[in-house]
Amino acid sequence: MSINQPLVSVIIPTYNRATYILDSINSVLNQTYKNVQIIVVDDGSTDLTYELVKTKPVVEYYYQENAGQGAARTKGLSYCKGNLIASLDSDDIWYPDFLQLCVDRITGYQLDFVFANWDQQNLQGDFNSFLPNNKTLLPYTSRSVDFWIEFSSTELRHIYVQGCPSPSSSFIVKKEFLKLGWNCEMNIADDWFMQLDIVLKNKCKAACLITPVWRKRISGTNICDHRDSSEVIEKLYVEDLHTILNAFNAYLTKPERAILSKKFIEASVFSSFFKFRKERDFKRGFRQYMSSLQIDFLYTTKFTLKYVMYRFKRKYNLSKL
């Protein structure tokens, strides 16, 4: 292998995905880029995952008691030999040129990480390019060159404070930036936490491929996509975001902290009212609401009034007034 063909270690965390796991593994084996190490970390599966993975002798298989996707990825990282790290979810599929395009960009342009657009499965089962629906990345697409958009360190901070545009299956990064692995406390946002850790603590250069080169499938066991909206809001934008705010407080600028705080407050207000109205869980609802008041009393009050007015208009069909 030449210096421009570095080893890519691919971590595939999985939990009871026997239906999909071989498709994901085969999508790595069928890459035009061949210098890969494939690591499957089984997060306590009780189906036929082990038997299926063992039909692929080239794949390294490791088992752990169920501890979540963040813990599985981090365990996989401990076995990685490559200087470039990728993590493919076990129900996703890379198109054959995914790795070649991404590795060529990192090595050819001295980048720290890259991520790529994908085809997202909708509720009807059809696949559509995700990027046109991403409001954070869309303003940058006009300056793409050869279907790639490069970002400065400042732009990366702005993008990732807004949210996570690069789920695990889209993302390839230099190993040196993954000293801590993935945060095992995250319910959903282990990717977002890891990527914020990179862009907030380092002056990075990165790029995004706007051509879809992988496929994200939706199944009944997806970490995020199978949950209803109220659960996603509570797990991601209340619990996970609260951890993110505490972890990165010293690295955030005042405007960045304000953006994340507002996301947390809005989610907390919604979630607390949902607990009051639907679940009758007044204790947890009150505790969530108080946490938002402690972060920003004035904005919490303002948003509460706005939310109550929205609920009132919706209930009495006054939205046109």
Rank of each mutant, 00 (worst) to 15 (best):
S271R: 01
V238C: 15
T243I: 15
E256N: 04
V238F: 14
L137P: 08
K262F: 06
N202V: 04
E185R: 15
K175S: 15
S170V: 10
C164H: 00
S152E: 06
C164Y: 02
E176L: 04
L156S: 06
V269A: 08
N183F: 02
W148R: 00
D240I: 04
F171C: 09
Y160E: 01
P167L: 02
E256P: 11
K135N: 15
F270H: 09
A207D: 06
K174E: 08
G220R: 00
V161Q: 01
K263H: 08
K179A: 13
F193P: 03
K216E: 00
I210P: 01
C224Y: 04
I188W: 04
T141V: 13
S219N: 09
D197V: 03
S230G: 00
E155K: 13
Y251R: 07
Y160W: 14
P167G: 02
K205I: 01
S271A: 15
T141M: 10
I259K: 13
W214D: 08
P255W: 11
H158Q: 05
N183Q: 04
F264M: 11
S230T: 07
D197Y: 03
L252I: 05
N246P: 02
S142K: 14
N246G: 04
S271V: 00
K235I: 06
F270L: 10
F264C: 12
S152Q: 03
I233F: 03
A189Q: 09
I210D: 05
F171M: 14
A258T: 02
I265N: 07
H226R: 11
P255H: 05
D225S: 15
S153P: 10
L252C: 11
C208E: 00
D146S: 10
S169M: 00
C204Y: 00
K203I: 10
S170E: 05
E176N: 06
C184K: 15
L156A: 09
R257A: 12
V238K: 09
D190K: 05
I244C: 04
P212K: 02
E266M: 14
W182E: 02
A250E: 14
Q195E: 13
H158L: 12
K262N: 11
I210C: 06
D197Q: 10
K254S: 13
E185M: 09
F177V: 11
I218W: 09
Q195L: 13
M186V: 00
I223A: 14
S153M: 11
Y237W: 14
R257L: 13
D190I: 01
K179E: 13
L137H: 11
K135Q: 14
C184F: 10
S219Q: 02
S142P: 03
E239C: 12
L200P: 10
L260E: 05
N222M: 03
K135T: 06
A207M: 08
R215E: 01
D191N: 09
D190N: 09
H226D: 03
